[in-house]
């Protein structure tokens, strides 16, 4: 009996692991308790490969690959942690912190923020880059939720969960480059948009950009882990 053809064996950080064809390096790494930091990735949503936190090295390639979209291949040798990757991840985090006004101490997500915790896990203790301090709005027009652009890292989890899971596609990105901005519908106040008030975007938001009104810090844990179950139940139908 030959082995099933869709099983791929590879090496991640010196550990022999296996995955099925079509699985990503990130999936297989996490199945094997090898941690790779991510920000835009979320189980249950499509991948965009935008935050670049999950970049890994692949032997015999000068290029780095985002492990969230990199499919496993037979014989692949992946390195998820090196001095080079650590430096890149820290610098990318610095770019995030310097881009907008992330004042952790007074953020609704303090203690429940993935940007904050990733910075800690990656050993970032300060930001070398000058803070840009842009003047950004807070949209509190919604009866239940608040959008604070100061905290947004443009990961588009909200855009994807609204379009792919809720099916409403209220959120999208306006403008380009450093001026990119999350908008509801055609740049309307959130409270006047076609929002269905399901709150999924708030739950998946990694930072304090989307939050529930009158909740703060410890009262505001987020639960993005509902997504894979939701998808499982839907697929089961």
């Amino acid at each position: 009996m030959s082995a099933p053809v869709d099983v791929k064996t590879l090496v991640i950080d010196g550990v022999n692991v296996s995955g099925s064809a079509g699985q990503t390096v990130l999936e297989v790494a996490r199945e094997n308790n090898i941690s790779i930091p991510t920000l835009c990735h979320l189980d249950g949503l499509s991948e965009v490969g935008a935050c670049r936190m999950c970049l890994v090295e692949v032997k015999n390639s000068p290029k780095l690959f985002p492990s969230c979209v990199l499919k496993v291949e037979e014989g692949m040798e992946v390195t998820t942690a090196s001095d080079r990757l650590k430096h890149y991840r820290q610098t990318i985090l610095e770019l995030f912190f310097a881009e907008r006004n992330h004042i952790c101490s007074v953020c609704v997500a303090n203690g429940h923020c993935e940007l904050q915790s990733t910075a800690q896990s990656q050993g970032l203790t300060h930001v070398r880059l000058p803070y840009r301090n842009p003047k950004l709005d807070v949209d509190a027009s919604h009866e239940r939720f608040v959008l604070d652009h100061n905290r947004c890292i443009l990961c588009t989890r909200c855009v994807r969960v609204c379009a792919e899971i809720e099916g409403a596609h209220v959120w999208d990105i306006m403008g380009r480059g450093i001026d990119s901005m999350l908008i509801a519908d055609l740049h309307q106040p959130w409270g006047e948009s076609s929002c269905t008030r399901c709150g999924k975007c708030v739950q998946v938001c990694p930072t304090g950009a989307l939050s529930e009104k009158s909740k703060f810090g410890a009262e505001h844990p987020k639960h993005p882990e509902f997504l894979p179950y939701l998808n499982m139940m839907r697929e089961g139908q």
Partner: peptide, 14 residues
């Protein structure tokens, strides 16, 4: 944080 990042005092910057 104020010494490290600017923190709350820096909220006047914009």
């Amino acid at each position: 944080d104020c010494a490290v990042t600017g923190n709350v005092p820096s909220m006047r910057n914009p």
